[in-house]
Nucleic acid binder design. Structure first.
Length: 423
RNA sequence: GGAGGGUUGGCAGAGUGGUCUAAUGCGCCGCACUCGAAACGCGGUUGGGAGCAAUCCCUCACAGGUUCAAAUCCUGUACCCUCCGCCA
């Protein structure tokens, strides 16, 4: 959500931002509603002031005739007030539903474009592996090595269900432990295991709702299953006033992640590239309300994730998302995509975004700045480790005989094991 | 799942229709005192909104309702606590 005052003062900028993101939003329509809102508020406040003043007099006055005159005058005022309040309620409803749809303005450095096809590569790392044999898919490799059971996965869980078994489970645990240690060694990251079953507010606050409800699993009690720990991590300080001296806050959260993948029924149906549930480490940063700070931490969380990919020896590239591929609240986003040999292309393993105060305004997370003013903190997030790097490791580290070399940094978490091969 | 109790400012806690502009205490900030400090004393201390300003409006979990007037009465919702039941 943007500040209405900011929108009023910068309506052209906001309109251009929406256009750049290819989001259909009419700023003028919002401003018209806002004019009505402000007019009604000022009317209502005038009447309330009169009501308050007269109420004071009613208490003090002793003459019963004068008193009942005042009361009937107030009765009349009340019915007028009620009419206006009713009108305001309608206007507020329209106003709010427009306000939550105002897109945040993309950064200058964000390229124009319509979809992910227009994203621009900005860096690459690592050597794309050359095989002197036809590389197998992670599905084939893992099932052969008893690391994965898709058949039983679908039997038990249905479409996109899977079991990680044996060395598949061990390798996944090794990855988690590696990532946990990676942030532990950095020292200033606060680890959390967070809820995935989350109420509506945090989804509204992070910008996943109200639009996009069909992407979420929902319980019969009205909670949603979150697709990322970001939702809970951002909700953690909801409605709080933080101490400036505690900023920045750097959270590394771990949680199951649920994705309904409702618009992707025919996509990536082989293997476990696209699944309904997986586990994920997510970085979230809350920092001072400064663009410079946001940019600084955006680069930092991006470097963290690249550091993990490099330690794992996974070739990847980074793309900057074009404006049309940005979410409502995002100012700028990098996607990190690792090489997937079986598809002969890069596939996304995570994305790093910053939002300025778009999320924290909705979540009401503030701090008092040195000038004495309350400000909304800035928020950022980035995947640290999704479920996909496991797949990338299996495919990139495969040998001709179908065995899989274990990346050096993971061996200590696999009891020294160096290779996964058929037993 | 059942029964009961609760939710008030940074914290504790009083207030059960009108002077609540929310007592009191603690904490915090300032002033005074002091060589300096503690104690004592005095003053201040929720957040948001409208307006050029004076000023005004809202805010006692949230949403409705009753009333000329609601922290206070009624209804619903959320959360917390206690006990019972169930359960890892």
């Amino acid at each position: 959500m943007l500040d209405i005052k900011f929108i009023r003062d910068n309506k052209d900028l906001v309109q251009m931002g929406a256009k750049k993101k290819h989001i259909d939003f009419d700023v003028e329509e919002l401003l018209k509603v806002d004019d009505k809102r402000r007019e009604l508020i000022s009317e209502i406040e005038k009447k309330r002031a009169e009501q308050n003043e007269t109420s004071d007099k009613i208490v003090r006055i002793s003459d019963p005739v004068e008193k009942s005159e005042m009361i009937s005058k107030m009765q009349a005022l009340k019915s007028e007030l009620q009419k206006e309040e009713e009108e305001l309620k309608t206007v507020m409803h329209d106003w709010q539903s427009l306000m939550v749809r105002v897109p945040n303005i993309p950064d200058m450095s964000v390229p124009e474009g319509n979809s992910d096809e227009d994203n621009k590569e900005i860096s690459t790392w690592g050597e794309i592996p050359k095989f002197d044999f036809t590389p197998k898919s992670h599905m084939e490799l893992m099932e052969n090595l008893n690391m994965l059971s898709l058949e039983r996965g679908t039997k038990v869980a249905g479409f996109r269900g899977y079991f990680l078994t044996g060395d598949g489970a061990r390798l996944q645990f090794a990855l988690w432990q590696f990532v946990n240690d990676y942030f532990l060694k950095k020292g200033d990251w606060f680890p959390m295991i967070v809820p995935s079953l989350v109420r509506r507010e945090a989804f509204m606050g992070t910008g996943y709702l109200p639009q996009g409800e069909e992407d979420l699993f929902k319980t019969q009690d009205g909670e949603f299953l979150s697709g990322t720990a970001e939702v809970s991590l951002m909700g953690y300080h909801m409605d709080e006033i933080l101490d400036k001296k505690d900023l920045p806050k750097k959270f590394i959260g771990f949680s199951p992640a649920f994705r309904r993948e409702i618009g992707a029924h025919g996509k990536d149906t082989k293997g476990i590239l696209r699944v309904h549930e997986f586990y994920k480490f997510e970085q979230v940063v809350l920092c001072e309300a400064s663009h410079t700070e946001s940019v600084k931490f955006h680069e930092e969380i991006q470097a963290n994730t690249e550091g993990i990919m490099q330690a794992l020896g996974l070739p990847y590239h980074v793309v900057i998302n074009c404006a049309g591929d940005l979410g409502l609240g995002q100012v700028k986003k990098y996607d990190i995509e690792a090489w997937l040999p079986s598809e002969n292309k890069y596939r996304e393993t995570g994305s790093a975004s910053y939002f300025h105060d778009f999320q924290t305004r909705r979540l009401n997370i503030r701090y008092r700045d040195d000038d004495g003013k309350m400000k909304f903190v800035h928020s950022l997030n980035n995947t640290a480790l999704s479920g996909r790097p496991l797949i990338m490791i299996v495919e990139n580290y495969q040998n001709a005989d179908g065995s899989i070399r274990i990346p050096d940094v993971l061996q200590q978490y696999m009891n020294g094991q160096k290779i996964i091969s058929k037993k």
